[in-house]
Design a protein around this nucleic acid. Sequence first.
DNA 1: GTCAGTTTGTTGTGCCGTAAAACATAAGCG
DNA 2: CGCTTATGTTTTACGGCACAACAAACTGAC
Lengths: 407, 407
Amino acid sequence: MGTAQQAAGARQSLIRESNLGLVLRTVCAADAPLSRADVAALTSMTRSTVSRLVDDLVSTGLLDEVAPPTGRQGRPATPLVPGTRWAALGLQVNAGYLAARVVDLRGRVVGERLEAQDLLGSDPETTLVALGDLAADLLRRVPSGVRLVGAGLALPGIVSVSSGVLLSAPNLGWSDVRPADVLAASDRLGGLPLSIGNEADLAARTVAEEAPGRSGSHGDFVYLSGETGIGGAAVLDGRVMTGRHGWAGEVGHVCVDPDGPVCRCGSSGCLEQYAGKRALLAAAGLPLDASPSDLVARVEAGDPRASQAVDRAARALAVALAGVVNVLDIPTVVLGGHLGEAAGVLAPAVEAMLHERVLSGRWVRPRIVTAPADPAPGATGAALRELAAVLAGPAPWTDRATAVSGP
Amino acid sequence: MGTAQQAAGARQSLIRESNLGLVLRTVCAADAPLSRADVAALTSMTRSTVSRLVDDLVSTGLLDEVAPPTGRQGRPATPLVPGTRWAALGLQVNAGYLAARVVDLRGRVVGERLEAQDLLGSDPETTLVALGDLAADLLRRVPSGVRLVGAGLALPGIVSVSSGVLLSAPNLGWSDVRPADVLAASDRLGGLPLSIGNEADLAARTVAEEAPGRSGSHGDFVYLSGETGIGGAAVLDGRVMTGRHGWAGEVGHVCVDPDGPVCRCGSSGCLEQYAGKRALLAAAGLPLDASPSDLVARVEAGDPRASQAVDRAARALAVALAGVVNVLDIPTVVLGGHLGEAAGVLAPAVEAMLHERVLSGRWVRPRIVTAPADPAPGATGAALRELAAVLAGPAPWTDRATAVSGP
DNA sequence: GTCAGTTTGTTGTGCCGTAAAACATAAGCG
DNA sequence: CGCTTATGTTTTACGGCACAACAAACTGAC
């Protein structure tokens, strides 16, 4: 087509905003508190410039100054840390539970509410209102003075992020739901804007950044979220690849064997039919409400049926992941959810087979690692995404004067 | 780990450079010539600012002013077009030919040399020197005054872009080759810096942008390059996704059936074993030197063996591409090379099967389209990549005074 | 205890690039 | 020929950063 794209010219204020964000991100990314001079050295800006930017950030509470250390020569530096006055709300609906979390700019979970509940076939509206109650209860306990920058909701299904519609969530039995409308109608979030996202995409974010702006141990990886189904996400250089419509990363429905069992997605031989929680437990002869650790125990006890189920799943994982690694050139795979719990018996076999099947395996050996155990990583990830918006461009936030929260 | 990343602070000169590039790209992206006032309107900058930026670009020849049109009211505008004084050299080595092209900033092929040659098992040094001769001959015919910004070489194999090493090219029988060193030693490129890239990645670029800075009809697509093997590339929002090491897009080695034939990559059941040129022709009972059009003719004539081979390939393509589409969320597939030539008999079947196998197929129907026929798209893509560096940031180029080329 | 040495943070000066508005230019049109 | 319209240029002002000098605060040695 060749139509000229709309792109705004850079004016002087942009460089201010850009540097404001750079300073904030630099402080957030650091392991130890940085002084103004440290930031200047890292960003190759002058101390005077950094100083003025930092002053702005401190006055809005995006950065905090802490007590100067002693013992070193020269004028004592003023250590800077991410502020505690800014936080975001993360929500999650899953087949087995509701979750609400508040995460602050330092990445600390300020407050949390979890509620186990079987939600397969539940009514979307009722469930979302219950989630709203959970959130409202949580928000009441948040210390006053904390500014909430937004709310995010992690959902296990196909989500249209831009329009805010959950198109389909088979494990909940939901389709065409607009959570923001439901929660706005019930007014439990106090006008906080709500965005939604895919559970795996958001859970992957908790691996990509251990705190807002601070990248995790892996910069590029494929995340596999073993909840009831198998969700997935691809992270490239710390950013979750969402794809054109936000549906990228559906590794669970990569075809492992075209002659394999029919999947409820309409295709056949999907990975989920081999390594999904139900498929795995059923193949091992375990009840559907058994836990992955039961499976691991059986395998370690020498149960041949369990071992066979695990082998079958490992083989399927290797085939599917090899394709993903070949296409994305990301040799690291992070296993979360039930796959993470079963990683002890799964990972070694998958890793070996991956090595054989990956074209570039000769030069970079594929690795499988396990995500830290967390009942609701999607909720944390949703909060992190909201906070990431602040880090990307703090300027719009420094203007707003009043806080949303408070008792 | 959370180490603070090195990021430079934005200084004032950056905004100049940024806007310089923006103006250049805006003009290049437009279908019709733009005036200074048009650019100002599109970029939301003032006419005065645009005017000064354009003056700089015109003085370096990155933009040309053409004759003002007549017939409209008001002071006649000065139409701007990409300059003809800037060009890049694109080279390609493939199993069947050598190619050299010079492409200018308007996307026109200024000069071209093609040489058919069987290069399987050839000596890398001899072949690259021959390519250098071809290029030197081509450069002699380039009009004087044309500035060459760089040279790119498209190679059919695993390439380490950053270090400039062709790690492995099975279809040439090459491994661990450093083309830049060979060509620098023979001094046939007159000191022009050479970068290398994967053939499919670069060929995909010719689909993504029909001219430097002017995007093609598809912004997001998976490109399948059917040369001797099957290469691939993923294009997201006009940018080729290269992956961590530059090896992304190897769709040819996605596993279609784990029990399928062994591939020379060490894996089994790779797509290439079903839809690769050799596999396809062999399955159809055609000689290895037959052309894809022969296959199409046989199918249309009702040859059952040919039809069966095509069906098998289509099935394999659907399985592999469904996985790719599920993971990347890119519902458009562009077929190039022999797959493009056979698209008439392949595409409809693949499209139908894709629709069934893609998770999001209910909302966005996957489409298969054909790339324009071109004997050496990699060469053009390599040149486009060099020119893209100029468009991304023209500032470094406007400083250099002297040209490289000339008779 | 005092003073040199050292590192940090702040204050003025100048340069540079864009915005805004007035002005100059070059057509068409009645 | 003057009016209208649109483009391109000039002038002035403002905001941002770099640079350099300065002030602040602590260590350590004599």
